[in-house]
Write a protein that binds this DNA or RNA. Sequence first.
DNA 1: TTGAAAGCGCTAACAT
DNA 2: ATGTTAGCGCTTTCAA
Lengths: 340, 340
Amino acid sequence: MAAFTSRDVARLAGVSQSTVSYVMSGRRPISDETRKRVQAAIEQLTYQPNAGARALASQRTQVVGLVVPFGPAADTTGLLPFLETITGCARERDHDVLLVTADEGTSALTRLAGQSLCDAIVLMDIAARDSRLPVAAASRVPVILIGIPEETWGLPCVDLDFPEAARLAVAEIAAAGHDRLVALGYSAGEIARDVNYVGRFERAAVAAAAAAGIEHLAVSPMEPSPAGARAAVEQALALGGPRPALLVPSSSSVPWVLQALTERGVVPGRDVTVVGLCTDAAAETTTPPVTNVSTEPRTVSALAMQTLFRSLERDRQEPTGGVELVTPRLTRRGTTLPPP
Amino acid sequence: MAAFTSRDVARLAGVSQSTVSYVMSGRRPISDETRKRVQAAIEQLTYQPNAGARALASQRTQVVGLVVPFGPAADTTGLLPFLETITGCARERDHDVLLVTADEGTSALTRLAGQSLCDAIVLMDIAARDSRLPVAAASRVPVILIGIPEETWGLPCVDLDFPEAARLAVAEIAAAGHDRLVALGYSAGEIARDVNYVGRFERAAVAAAAAAGIEHLAVSPMEPSPAGARAAVEQALALGGPRPALLVPSSSSVPWVLQALTERGVVPGRDVTVVGLCTDAAAETTTPPVTNVSTEPRTVSALAMQTLFRSLERDRQEPTGGVELVTPRLTRRGTTLPPP
DNA sequence: TTGAAAGCGCTAACAT
DNA sequence: ATGTTAGCGCTTTCAA
């Protein structure tokens, strides 16, 4: 069964092909009478427009390219909420998502744009100095970054406000009456990859601690595994003094840190304060539920898509660019010590 | 900078447009001389063919549609290795992946095929009786299932050999000298969704236990959370006798079950045997590393893609269909009791 | 070994 | 309010 074309629809409805097109796009007024006939024909044939032909004629693919950090070195934890939200937002605007892996590097971008595979590109897992950015900035299609590099090249960026997240976490620790905190850092891989949020969070944490008059110590790197967490926790407890406060900015490590503490008989919320940077969903399922600053992947993704579609609608003329930040929230759960 | 077309390349190389096309596709002999001139022109202009035009003319999109189980009820754990392997295999064959969410239901399939958005479709998260299958079977493009429904509708299926996985797990438990095992079941959501592997695994486990002369008890459902695991573990220990053996077929629950046991002072590998069904990577990072039957998502995905491309090359005439199973492996780690 | 030319199915001027 | 028509950029016969 070969698919029907708009010509078949036109013939069946007794109108011209362009009328069928205009009925579907609504780009010019159509009498009720004809519209009904055309729509009936469309349904009768279960007509669906050919995407390739449409793209060729209209110069719009109705596809968003999504470059995700798969590949060996990638921080793949917590990626799914992003993917899910991005595809959902795309579908709402009648777009599909073409999945491309970051290990293609720069050529992913040139391919997506060069072959006219998509109308816009979402780039994730941005490094502080990301070699893809100059290519992205020169791209024929708009590109949006999820993450904030050192130099944006005029590209629009959306991300969590990591400095604010650090401030919230430090404020919580200060409010619990600690005069010192130990940050259990990111993994060696994340640090080596120069992922942008690592530095953004750390610098703000150090500054906020200084401002609050509390000491900032760090154990870094820490691998997100039970063993890595055990090693880091041992050091942290040695550094943390009699009433330790732990700040865990690496989502995937949060459960392991809690487990490592528990194993040692150190009870989070009774003997030690733990504040994690992770999604609320993840924080709710740890044992015990951890006081967290939320990372809001869904909000970040939705905002990115909104910005992207705005720039797509504005016929890509006005200068986009600029940084949009999503404000994290702190939720106190079971792992904050009461003030002394 | 508008993109160059094959006409530009042809003009620059002093050949006809068709020659450019044939140089790129290799579908007819070209003299070395002309080939070089054309390739030079292509590089000089950094020409890339327009995907829409190519699809329109050739009736091939070079895109694989991937329907993934996002959405509220989905078992999203362990999805990433599938996505990663599938996109990787696609790229190897010069294809891209269009990501579609399962919550679109049947319309995802009709849309992908109807709009000629892709040349083939990969369908994941198959229910035992899946309403999408009749639609898939009637689809204009080949569809492959990852998962095995009760009735395949002639569609090719690829999945782990869950019955064999159950047999391996039961054999391990029997070899450790247990005369009884407790299966900690799937989540209520998975059961309600009628996910195909649940029944396949359970039935085989019951049969294998009977054959081995050991008793098969079940605690089900169990939510994949610390609380759910604690509740299930409590019941399981009550049922398990003095020397309990636990079988955990739900990957996402394995770490929580181990944690719940440890919390109670019951040490896996000393007081209780635990066998989990999960990836080797996951099994290595639990505390302690758990004896596991591997789920091999990468092998399953790669096999599915291989089968898919075979059916694409064979010009979609021969009857595809049939079930391909990937054999799991059992790896003994720290959680198997020594025989008494 | 190469070229000319006819579409693929759609959109969007341009006419009426 | 609707129809006519000229492409969009490529592949692929058919001809030479």
